[in-house]
Design a protein around this nucleic acid. Structure first.
Lengths: 229, 229
DNA sequence: AGAACTTTGGATCGTCGCTCCAATCATGCT
DNA sequence: AGCATGATTGGAGCGACGATCCAAAGTTCT
């Protein structure tokens, strides 16, 4: 019996699983600290004090690694939410969770738009669909409604990632960067671009997070309106 | 007089403007024919039978070129629409125009999510804002509403681009590729992933374009519902 | 005609993702 | 115990990329 227990203990795969996880964590650390394009295979070998072979043994290629890193971050978000009872609040919680995660790790936004259908996004899609179902949305209207919500979230995610890239590339602090953007918009011809011109003058009072949530509520209102006319 | 007419003809800038345009058109041709990653500077020098210096003289860098190519395609879409009177129909026309353009040139979708705030997107934003205004959406609700629409469009754009990339990478024809996706989804655990599991079995009857338009109508309904409760 | 400037082609650089292989290490078998 | 088999590692090297740079060719103005 003891012999059989030892046999079961050998667990040769643990090293691999452990190592892939270590690599993914290192990748997330680099991505968070220095951004998307700083994640090079060379940087990884330096940080992990290893060679290419070791990394490529656990990871298929750079895209695989980026995807795994995104799953790592998004997975936590979805897991952290489960317990919200009211479906409407649950939907807002999922959306806000994703928004906050992407605000904290902008590279995730870019990765999500580059590769939707990652495992982590499947959970998001399921969660949204389930909550819509709980909101009494008719079965056949669920896919379109869920698609609207998820695509909106992905759109905002991409935009946040792009903004973060631009901010990083400018090497300015957030304040002056936003001031520059506002100035450029305010300079637009107010006849040809009235809305953008105006937006340039109100950018100071603008809150991305609030606007995002307003969009979610708008879509939820639309779902409600369409379904019990 | 003839001499002065000749003098006026010199037009030293025409060569530059013409050349930048030629380069952008060549880039679009390559992108359409072989996809995003086939647009290398080397491929461009071959196609244009020139060297790096000539290209870099007219174009800042690869990103500049990609952006200009996207503007080139999107610009036509916005220009082609102007004449729709009914604001609701105009909004749908803008959205469908973008959708069709991105379906025809998937790389544009990726570029749009990577670099929003391109000139071409400003026109889109303006058009959407103006039409919302015409729909009697209150002034202060316009930015949020326009943001919801544009971000949704960008989300779908990114997704289309990702799907096109996956399709191209698989080297399968569209039919069997979709069948594979459907099969993979249908294989998902129907308890943990009921919605995706079900979607896998109905993918055949699914029309991206219809679903996209349904999302637009959903958001428009939400805008209407929120604003005259 | 010649000076000043623009435009062009291509050699070259540094970096990237990735492959490949020799070495090291762990494991199971006899 | 000792060997063999396979997993794991480090790093040299490859081809391709974006980008720079400069000498040659062309153009425009004096």
């Amino acid at each position: 019996m003891a012999a059989m227990a030892n046999k079961a203990q050998r667990a040769p795969r643990r090293t691999e699983a452990l190592s892939r996880d270590v690599i993914v964590q290192a990748a997330v650390a680099i991505l968070d600290a220095e951004g998307e394009e700083a994640l090079t295979l060379r940087a990884l070998t330096v940080r992990l004090a290893t060679g290419y072979g070791a990394i490529y043994h656990h990871v298929a290629d750079r895209d695989d690694l980026l995807g795994a890193a995104a799953d790592h971050v998004i997975g936590r978000v979805v897991a952290d939410i489960g317990g919200v009872a009211d479906p409407r609040e649950a939907l807002r919680a999922v959306a806000m969770g994703l928004f906050d995660a992407i605000a904290a790790h902008p590279w995730v936004g870019a990765q999500l738009t580059r590769e939707p259908w990652r495992p982590a996004l499947l959970d998001v899609y399921e969660s949204v669909s389930a909550n819509l179902h709980a909101l009494d949305v008719p079965e056949r209207a669920v896919p379109d409604s869920a698609g609207a919500l998820v695509n909106y979230i992905l759109g905002v995610a991409g935009q946040n990632a792009a903004n973060a890239r631009a901010l990083a590339a400018s090497k300015l602090d957030r304040e002056t960067f936003l001031a520059n953007v506002a100035a450029r918009w305010a300079q637009l011809d107010p006849v040809r671009y009235p809305a953008m011109h105006k937006a340039g003058r109100h950018l100071r009072e603008h809150d991305d997070r609030e606007q995002f949530l307003a969009g979610i509520d708008l879509i939820l209102a639309g779902i409600a309106a369409v379904n019990h006319t």
